[in-house]
Amino acid sequence: MNNIPQLPLVKWVDVAVSYLRSNARWIFDPISDFLDAFVNIISDGLMILPPLVFIALMVIITVILTKKIWGLPVFVLLGLSLIWNLDFWEGTMLTLALILSSSMIAIVIGIPVGIWMAKNRTVEGIVKPILDFMQTMPAFVYLIPAVSFFGIGMVPGIIASVIFAMPPVVRLTNLGIREVSTELIEASDAFGATGWQKLYKVQLPLAKNTIMQGVNQTIMLALSMVVIASMIGAEGLGTEVYRAIGRNQAGQGFASGIAIVILAIILDRLIQVLNKKKYSI
């Protein structure tokens, strides 16, 4: 091994990053501006309502969706009240804004990529290893270039969350479409459906449940990035946790952790309700 010179991988990446940093501003700046505006609109929108009104609204929505009074609506009421009581309201809204914007971006990119993968073997062959890479590369590692390109704050947090959270929705969209039985595909072909008609009328509706599972997982993964994103200045509940770690405050850390858990449970259950089947397969 000693005779073989070391591969200058480290140097290559460094050179590439610094080159992009100084020469690709024209790409990164507009993206950065857009994301910044996007997440601001969402967080401002969330914080426009007083906490009490927000909680009441969420409870009403939950009642309508679940068609139940007990169970989830009660949990929403108590959970959000606890967050408010513990004085995590602003942090929670910022975190929610981060999760919503990054998962929306992940879904808007992820579903079409998943569809493309399902329709084209070559694309599947190329995208699959990229997804593996995105999921297994430790999240901290791509925080570094994200900061180089986008500075610190919410934007690199969103970028990192999108990269980390996108693979499930892509994979499950691909899977959902491929799972549609051959006979149904043959049926739509035999009656003269075009490729788009087949996609809209048959494949997507039948893959919907699987795709929604992917959406759910994507949102959960985005949530799990909250604390990591706070290391590069993305504000929210993650910041509280991160600060508690730095100051060795077990109580504060636990309390903000609880707030994240409450948020996660509410998001997860609401998405599952939305994903109820109308017909059985």
Binding site: E183, L184, A187, A190, F191, G192, V202, L206, Y279, I281
Partner: peptide, 29 residues
């Protein structure tokens, strides 16, 4: 596609009905 639409249609062994569509929506596909 035009020929498949106008001249021939197919009946399948396991029916090939779309589970997310009602009977009339299946028929009118």
């Amino acid at each position: 596609i035009e020929t498949r639409r106008k001249k021939m249609s197919m009946v399948f062994q396991n029916f090939g009905l779309f589970p997310h569509r009602t009977i009339i929506e299946n028929t009118g596909f």
